[in-house]
Computed example of a mutant assay.
Amino acid sequence: MKIAIVHEWLDTYAGSERVVEQMLELFPEADLFTVCDFMPEAERGFLRGKVPTTSFIQRLPRARKWFRYYLGLMPLAVEQFDLSEYDLVLSSSHAVAKGVLTGPATLHVSYVHSPMRYAWDLQHQYLRQSGMDRGVKGAATRWLLGRLRAWDHASAARPDVILANSAWIAERIRKAWRRESTVVHPPVDIEGFPFRPAKGEAYVIASRLVPYKRVELVAEAFRAMPDRQLIVIGDGPSMPRLRAAAAGATNIAIRGRLPQMELVALLQSARAFVFAAEEDFGIGMVEAQACGTPLIAYGRGGAADIVQDGATGVLFGAQSVEAITDAVRRFEALTIAPEACRANAERFSRDAFRANLLREVTAACAARGMPAP
């Protein structure tokens, strides 16, 4: 069986690249296609020495720095990949990869991280945060997003099978594309976050500091609880908002970006990991659970798949100071076993991902009368 793996673009090793890594682990002979490849040499190990086939966007002016500005051309770019000789195509898609063209003899299984967020329900948030919600530039961006939305919906009919990375994303797929999908949770390197049953007194949040993560909301909640310690790990454009929210609070320590060993040590010793964002999945939450650390998390998005409310953490129902403070108090009234948290994290291991992905691909092949890969 000849197999192709299609991914949007390569420029950093992040969540979607971890999925590609495990696809290549499962199917090491597969060929790799991407819109463009600007992955730094030091981070290319997960590609197993493969040199991807790229699109014309790779050669456009200043593409290395500005390839995202060519988003409007990316649907055309992925449609130019000739996949006619492949029996199986696996796409890893959060924008355009699922839109590749395949013939009736080719089985296309698409692993979807999300429908194109900025073209659907997050369009207004994206426009506000990028400063493009008004004026000529705003009108042009809305027009482009409308075109992308139409293409995204039409191209969602192309995959034979769609896999979603969480129940939340499965619902977004149903809403945006009117397609059904099967949930296969993404792979998490839980081995890199060793279990430690002994816990300290400080609560921890580790996150990129961007608006939708709502880290400043957590800081405001802990400023209202001066007898509880909070450690904030991370950096980003929302750092000024975080510092303003924590101003005058002696119980809040802002540590910035930390080396991996220090991050792991703080997650291992945390009383609980606090998370207030509406996330597609939330790998950081699983990493904390792997350390044996309970979660206090906003109950929408991927957190609902991860947290076993009352057993491995507490879910709260609103992004508000009052909801977070109430959740902390409810958590402190519970007894949550670190061993239960670690066992919960095992559901999201890389081994589990490969087994679940292979099961779904094998079932899809059987339904088409094809041999198993």
Results as ranks from 00 to 15, higher is better:
104 P>G: 05
116 M>A: 11
82 D>R: 14
82 D>A: 12
90 L>Q: 01
94 H>N: 15
125 Q>F: 13
91 S>W: 01
107 L>E: 01
110 S>G: 08
84 S>F: 03
111 Y>G: 05
120 W>I: 05
128 R>A: 13
99 G>K: 14
92 S>R: 05
84 S>T: 12
83 L>A: 11
103 G>A: 01
83 L>F: 08
86 Y>F: 14
100 V>Y: 02
116 M>R: 08
92 S>Y: 04
126 Y>L: 00
119 A>G: 09
111 Y>S: 05
108 H>E: 02
93 S>Y: 07
113 H>C: 01
91 S>Y: 04
104 P>A: 11
129 Q>A: 13
96 V>P: 00
106 T>V: 10
112 V>K: 04
113 H>Y: 11
129 Q>W: 13
89 V>D: 00
130 S>M: 13
84 S>V: 04
127 L>R: 10
85 E>K: 15
122 L>F: 14
113 H>V: 00
89 V>G: 00
99 G>V: 02
106 T>E: 06
98 K>R: 12
124 H>C: 07
105 A>F: 06
110 S>H: 04
91 S>T: 15
83 L>V: 08
117 R>Y: 01
123 Q>K: 15
113 H>K: 04
119 A>Q: 09
118 Y>W: 12
117 R>C: 00
116 M>F: 15
94 H>R: 09
116 M>Y: 09
84 S>P: 10
108 H>D: 01
98 K>T: 07
112 V>Q: 08
87 D>Y: 06
108 H>P: 00
83 L>W: 07
114 S>K: 09
125 Q>P: 00
84 S>K: 14
85 E>N: 13
82 D>L: 03
105 A>Q: 15
96 V>N: 09
99 G>R: 15
118 Y>Q: 13
88 L>H: 04
110 S>V: 05
115 P>S: 13
109 V>T: 08
113 H>D: 02
88 L>D: 02
93 S>H: 11
127 L>K: 10
95 A>D: 03
84 S>M: 06
88 L>Y: 06
123 Q>C: 10
123 Q>A: 12
94 H>C: 14
102 T>E: 07
130 S>Q: 14
113 H>A: 01
111 Y>H: 09
116 M>C: 08
97 A>M: 06
126 Y>H: 13
90 L>R: 02
127 L>Y: 05
120 W>D: 09
97 A>Y: 07
91 S>H: 03
121 D>T: 13
115 P>V: 11
85 E>W: 07
119 A>D: 08
121 D>N: 14
103 G>P: 06
104 P>T: 07
125 Q>W: 12
113 H>T: 02
85 E>M: 11
86 Y>G: 06
113 H>M: 02
123 Q>H: 11
113 H>F: 03
96 V>Q: 03
117 R>Q: 00
127 L>W: 07
130 S>V: 09
86 Y>R: 12
106 T>H: 09
129 Q>I: 05
94 H>S: 15
85 E>P: 01
130 S>L: 04
87 D>W: 04
114 S>I: 00
128 R>S: 11
83 L>S: 08
92 S>P: 10
119 A>L: 09
124 H>V: 10
118 Y>V: 09
128 R>D: 13
100 V>K: 08
96 V>D: 00
88 L>V: 12
111 Y>V: 07
103 G>I: 03
127 L>T: 03
123 Q>G: 05
101 L>K: 12
125 Q>R: 12
107 L>Q: 03
